[in-house]
Structures are given as C-alpha cells and as structure tokens.
Design a protein around this nucleic acid. Sequence first.
DNA 1: GTAAGAAAAATTTTT
DNA 2: TTTTTCTTAC
Length: 760
Amino acid sequence: MNFLDELNEAQRAAVLCNDVPTLVIAGAGSGKTRVLTYKIAYLLSQGVPSYAILALTFTNKAAREMKERIGSLVDIHTVRRLAMGTFHSVFSRILRSEAEKIGFTSNFTIYDSADSKSLIKAIIKEMQLDDKQYKPQNVAARISNAKNKLISAQMYLSDAEMLHADVRSRMPMVKDIYQIYAARCKQADAMDFDDLLFYTNVLFKQNPEVLEKYRRIFQYILVDEYQDTNYAQYLIVQRLAEKHRRVCVVGDDAQSIYSFRGADISNILHFKNVYPESKTFKLEQNYRSTQNIVNAANSLIRKNKNQLHKNVFSEKSEGAPITVLSTFSDMEESFLVSRQIAAMMARNRYNYSDFAILYRTNAQSRVFEESLRKLSIPYKIYGGLSFYQRKEIKDVIAYLRLSLNKNDEEAFRRIVNYPTRGIGATTVAKVEDCARTQEITAMEVMANPLAFNLDVNAGTAKKLIAFSAMMNEFSQIAQTQDAYQTANKIIKQSGISEDVYKDKSVESISRQENIEELLSAIHGFVEDRLEQGETAAPLSDFLSEVSLLTDQDKEGEEDRNKVTLMTVHAAKGLEFKNVFVVGLEEQLFPSERSVNSENDLEEERRLFYVAITRAEEHCTISYARSRFRNGQTNYSNPSRFIHDIDERYLVLPDEMRSLEPRFSGLKDYQSFGNRDVAKPVSGLDFRKLKPVSASPARSHNGVGAQHSSLTPGTRIRHERFGTGTIESINGEGDNTKIWVDFGNNERRQLLLKFAKFTIL
DNA sequence: GTAAGAAAAATTTTT
DNA sequence: TTTTTCTTAC
C-alpha cells in the first residue's frame, strides 16, 4: 500500500492494527483524521466490503470530509456505500427500518431541541407548575441527562439518585414531567435527538436478532472524537462490537469539552478496562503548530489533574511566542485585534481565511463585527441562530412534517394558526384538551369538531374543518409527488407565501430569501437523489435528512476568504494560521458558573487548550478590563488561565504602565465607537463595593453559629453535593469561602453565607 | 384574537 | 444591550 508511506510510525501502526480493540490517543494536530481515513482506505484495499465498515463521527461535516478524502485514496464508488455518519444519522436510518419493533412508524418525526423544549413547556403549564421554578430549559436538560444515561421514564421513578438530584434542585416533579413527555413523544410518533440513541439501545436490547443482524453487517467499527461520547453512545458501540471486537476509537481526553451535554470522559479513560486485550496507540507529534504554541498548550493542560499522560511535541520551527494583549474595554479589544489582522494582511501573504477570532460566548461576536466592518475586513460568523432554526424555515418544515405525520403535536401547534386563520389560543387549547381526553390526535378533532362535542361556535368549527381539509390535501400531494413539488405547493396553498411576500420590509425580504433558499435546497436534494439513480425523492426522505442537519453542513461559496468568528466549541477540529483567543477574563473564561467546581474548571481549561491548539503560526490572547455585558459595564481581572501558561512561551503586557493609554491608535479607536469611555482600572475591586447586607448573616439549619468552628479537615454534609471534607477556608465575614472535597473527583468552592450544610 | 408595551432573562450546544 | 416572554388594552 503505497499510501501508507505517508504516515509516521505511530500512525501507521494504528492503521495496521485491526484485529483487536484499538484505542488511539491523538494529541491536538497529530493527524487523527488522517489515521481514520487511511485506516478505512486500508481496510477497503484489503478487500473489506464498504458496507461492513461503520464509521461514526460527531458532525455530518466531518463525515463528508472524510468520505471525500477516502475517495481520493480508493475507488470513489466504494466510498458511497460506507456506513459513515454521525451516531444520530446512522442510527436514525436503522431505527426507521426497524421502527415497528419499538412501537414507532418508519415515518417518525425527529423533534429538534426547540420542539422538545416547547413540548416540555406545554406540559409544565398543563400541570400548573410554576415555570420560574421549572424552567423548560432546565427540565429538558434533566430529561436529556437521564436519556443519555439510558434511564427510561419508568426507571426514573425508582432511581434514587436522579430523584434526589431533582429534590435538591427544587424540581421534584421532573419525574412526572418526564413520564408525560415520553408518552407524548411516542403518541406524536416523534423522537428527540436523545431518543435516537436511547431507542437504538432499546431496539438492540429487546431484539437480540436485530442486534445480531447489525453485528454481522458491521464487521469493523470506528469512532471519532470518542472523548465526547455519552453513555448511550458508548453502549451502542459496545453492543455492536461485543462479539467480533473489531473496534477502533480515536480521541483526545485533553479535548473533551462537551460534558455539559452528557459526554463522559471516562469512556475514553476506561476503554482499556472494557477491552482488556486492546492495544493503545499514542499520536504525539503535532504537525499543525509551531513549537511555541505546542509548548504553551502543554504547559497549560498540565495544570489539569484528570488526564492521560501524553508528550505532544512539534518539529516545526520554534515560532513566535503567544502574545497577551491587555485592553481597557471590549471595544478596544475588538479594535486592536481587527487592526492587527489588517496589519498582518498588509505585511504577509495571508488570506483573510487564515485568521480566526475565537471566543467563549456568542454574545462577544458583536463588537468584533463592528470593528471588522469599520476596517473593511470581510468576516463570517458561525453560530448564533442557524438557518434551520429561523422562524420562517421552521414554519415551512412544520407544514411538511404535519403533512407526513398527523400525530406531530409540535408541528400542529406551530402552524394551526399560522398564517393567522382565526384559530386562537383558546380554541387550540380546547382542541388539544379534547384530543387528550379522547386519546386521539388533535388533527382528528379538527376534522370533525362537532362529533366530539367541541365547545366552539359554528364559524370556528368551519375554520377547523377547513384547516383539516387543507392538511389532508397536502398529505395526498406528499405521497404522490416529489419533495420539491410538494414543498412548493404547500408554501403557496397554505398562505405562507402570501404572508411572507406581502410587504417589502428588510425583515420580510430576508424571510423571502430564506424560503427561496430552503426551496432550492429541497430542489438540490431531489436532483441529487435522481442523479444517484434513485427512482423517487419523496418528502419523507428529505425531512429525515434535514432534521439532523446543522448550519455548518451548508457550505457557502461566499464564505471563502473571510475571517472566521466562532465560539471555541465550534472551532474544535479546525485549524487556522493565525488565531486570536479573546475575552480571557475571570467570570467569562473560565465561565463564572464553572469556578466553583474543579471538574467544570478543568473542562474550561481544556476548552482553552482547544482554542490555543487551533493555531498554526501565531496565537494571540487578549483580555479586556471592562466589558459591556447584559446591559452594563463589568470590570474583571485577567483569566487565571493566562497564569497557567509557562511564561517562557508568552509575551505579557506591561501591566505597570497600563494606566497610560499606550496604544497608538487612540484616535481611530475613539472614532470607531464610544459607547462608554474606557476607564483605567485602579486597584479597586468593584465587586467588593456592593453594600454589605444589613441583615445579620443568615444561619441555615441552625448551623450558622458553628461556622466559626470550621477548620480544614472538618467533615460536612451538603444538601446538594453530599458529604465532603473541608480543605481550606478563605476570606472573611460574608465573603468567607471554603473549598470542599466531595470525593469522586468533585471539589467545590462554597460561599459560607449561602451554603446549606451540616457539620458531621 | 391581535397588537403593542412591559417585564424578565441573558453559557458553551457537533445532533 | 438585545431578545424573548408575559400583560394589557383595543
């Protein structure tokens, strides 16, 4: 195999090892994707049929790119038949073909996160719970969490740990919401994202013959980004690989940044325990970045306790040190970064696409937009509201969904009165109420409201029947015509086009463009299908594909040669010649919500590690002493993470002179925006200026008085986190904080004033 | 049933 | 600050 010569020793060894479980620990920039693509190409060249290779990636984009690369190594036609894609897309296809076995139809709808949240919100309302206490977002997260751990609604009822956690977060009714939510999804013939993994496990568990079938088909299993898999994903892989054990997982524990979504880093840390005969390969040579960048990143990640030992090194040139930029305000930060990009463009032969600005939160993009535009630098922002989340797109999709699945409750609710047709909230509530008590679908009630003794006047009843008739017609169209024709007709006949095209406002035009774009996407889908020799391109196929797409999957020609702006999360897996990591401030990066938990803090540090290791040639870190956030100016200190990097690899700002405006571009800076005048920060910590509460320190559980007796080593029981040992006590009065080790790797800092615990 | 104004909330998010 | 959700008056 001549292409094997293009690999280094460790990479080649990993590619050639295919008969035992294989763990590839791949440092940043070490050619992880290369190993995966060459491994697949190698297997194909050894005569393994393409359908026997199951390759699971974390994004559609990664799958597509990998397919392209493999296509350049082997015959393009074999590549098409690879079972390659995200967990969600691969297993949603399997679920569709086996749907009846688990009580769904093959046309089931996929609820996106907005649908789930909206349904949960509706349930909370029906249960007459306070939605301040039961925030749909939080409840959704709890349910998602349970599903990722494969805890069904039924099992949840007897899961002491989950129930306890709900009580502690003052949401004891989550268990009941979960019951209803699960039942309603099933009734609607709908699965949410988590269900796709959850029900795959159910399918395999309840139908051994089905599992056996797929075990036989998927002879080789490869998983990318294994550090970010959750338990449900782990178990799917485990089940499929259990017998033949030809499984290869690739990942980097140092880049695990999705635990807040259920990713479990122990999947990769404990792979060896699950597969004792496995072989481990470490890819440690970084081909992406200069030595300085690699060394700086290494010194940072060394501060984390939880990690596999690695020695990532670079043989590229030493390169420039990482520059740390201190600025007075977020606006100055954006200005200096933009100006730096302009300067580098002028000096070197860079393209705009060689630059990326990475931040912790999407909200930070705004000021950069402004200053980049001022300097006429083209840019592209990733994230924010994605195409498929836009209202007008979701509306159209909802029509398409309801045409195929009359049970789709969320689609129904969304469009029953859009465009407005005189079916208001009260009426809808009556219809839904009736549907629930009669145990039928809302659409059935709509078709014949009088038969169900619905308490509406004749005029309203007529409207309901009209809507029902219209949807029936759409269903007919959807079953006989292709996706493009169907969508086209629905948009015209539903009144959407009338509504969207009626005025010429900027928003309205943009909505029109979006709908056009959707239509052309559907058109493209149909053509694609026909080209590939399929006989038909029905709407159902389009919908099942589109619900798993994200913005990053749409490639835009117009995006070439632009500066990239994105969150660090979104930058995972990407690389740029020049990277600016901005907003390195306490309370922002690390996020203020993470600082009280050692585990969360380590994840933030990994996130920073990911950010730095995106850079090939230059990396610049910046922080602003004042930042406009949530409507007010906040002051903060440079991030602790900057101090985690070995100073040998940094150029630090001369903070002693920072009270004087040093930057030469003062004039430009002021002209470019003056929301607030950047103030030099004296040694004062503004947060301490808040009035001290007049009431005496509250005592909880009657322990307040005993707090003076706390010393390191004291055992306590915390209401929320369980029992732990006090490690240290800092600060005075109301500001006293303690670090507590709760075992299980969980260290937390608690503010004594608020912490509810008892001394043991 | 709708539209306009008030009030409240505002991480990260491959699917 | 902006964005979303809730109230209130027509």
